[in-house]
Design a protein around this nucleic acid. Structure first.
Length: 371
DNA sequence: TTAGGATGATGGATTACTTCA
DNA sequence: AGTGAAGTAATCCATCATCCT
């Protein structure tokens, strides 16, 4: 049987796939023997074995060997990046490795195994149902029933499959008494996945397959890893955003408090100095070009120079400044003391510059005295 | 021994697309 | 040819389960 597997034709191939040597799993720490004729020599290629998964992996191994006669139809991969992935058209790099390019192994049994690869249930590439305990039934169903159908499964078939899988899964659980074993990715695998996540936080099927092959993982595992990674990245970003908004809220609250206090002072000032009421009406307006608030009176126009001092056409007057970083509503007039529209407490708007409120000299002096 | 965080895995919901009547 | 229903696959999301410190 001749297999052609092209994994490099991704829309945006991973650069590091070429740069990074294939994850070597010859680390003896990961290799274990099996009871039935296992040759402790690691295979020439990669076989990651998580020692915690020995039992399950052994089951997978026998499973794979018993499933060898299954004929796979390795057709060219669909160029469609998503949807309509017919299971029988998907290449299975781990199977091709196991079944073809395994010069050291004469048969399917008694060899080193990869818990992540030999479970062929994931061969349908993302079709879920990846419970470790259901691998065998899934394999049989996927390649027996589905491929023999040669087309779409009708609803009744699918229901039958699901029922079969469910019962098989349950019976597996009962027979084996196994709880779900959890794979822990090695540091190398995690780092590799992280690298790829930096490049693409989503994967197209080819990239997924390439990564899976590179890492000796099932495509489904790569897919799940990316899903979890996306979810947890999003969660972290949400936390950061939340923290930022909280700080903004605190800042605004503080600003609001300060402006309220300042407003009270101004009001107190007005009531304690009734003569002020006789001054010409002073209107706070905003210069549209420099966005500064300035006062205008009937008699004089005030300007603010670079040093913050106010000049008028008549004389130089001290400037009463507020440290407020808020824009005072443009329609506010200080002469309208009773119905002032200084409603800064409601929605202060923060701006990156300091607004300067121009006051008449007398009021400015009083303000300086009080502050 | 236990608690809690990290993380792999699962199942349901949603969405986009294809096929078919 | 146009259209709606049904099927399929990818993804998101919430949650669970296991492992490890």
């Amino acid at each position: 049987m001749e297999l052609a597997l092209s994994l490099g034709d991704t829309s945006k191939p991973f650069k590091f796939l070429d740069q990074t040597p294939k994850i070597s799993t010859k680390d003896p720490g990961f290799c274990m023997g099996l009871e039935t004729g296992f040759t402790a020599t690691p295979r020439s290629q990669d076989k990651v074995v998580d020692s915690t998964l020995q039992g399950e992996a052994a089951a997978d191994d026998t499973r794979a060997s018993s499933d060898l006669p299954v004929q796979l139809n390795l057709l060219p991969f669909s160029p469609v990046p998503r949807r309509r992935q017919v299971p029988s058209q998907i290449p299975f790099p781990w199977l091709s490795d196991n079944l073809v390019s395994e010069p050291g192994s004469t048969d399917g049994s008694g060899r080193g195994f990869d818990v992540n690869r030999l479970s062929a249930e994931e061969a349908e590439e993302g079709a879920a149902l990846s419970s470790p305990n259901s691998a065998m039934s899934s394999f049989q169903m996927d390649f027996g029933i589905r491929s023999s159908g040669g087309g779409r499964c009708n609803k009744r078939d699918m229901e039958a499959i699901e029922a079969e899988r469910a019962s098989s899964r349950a019976s597996d659980d009962e027979e084996n008494g196994l709880t779900r074993k959890k794979l822990r990715l090695s540091k190398e695998q995690s780092a590799f996945l992280e690298e790829s996540f930096k490049e693409h936080n989503t994967l197209n099927p080819k990239q997924k397959l390439a990564l899976a092959k590179q890492l000796n993982l099932r495509p489904r595992q790569v897919e799940v890893w990316f899903q979890n990674r996306r979810a947890r990245t999003k969660l972290k970003q949400t936390e950061v955003d939340c923290e930022y908004l909280k700080r903004c809220c605190e800042t605004l609250t503080e600003e609001n408090r300060r402006l309220q206090k300042e407003l009270q002072e101004l009001r107190a000032l007005k009531t304690s100095q009734p003569f002020y009421m006789q001054l010409p009406a002073t209107t706070l307006t905003m210069c549209p070009s420099c966005e500064r608030v300035a006062t205008t009176t009937a008699s004089a126009t005030t300007n603010t120079n670079a040093t913050g001092n106010t000049t008028t056409s008549n004389n130089k007057q001290p400037l009463a400044t507020t440290a407020a970083a808020a824009i005072i509503p443009l329609t506010t007039t200080t002469s309208n003391t009773n119905s002032t529209s200084l409603s800064l407490a409601n929605k202060p708007r923060l701006y990156p510059f300091t607004t300067q409120v121009h006051m008449p000299q007398a009021q400015a002096q009083t303000h300086q005295a009080t502050s």
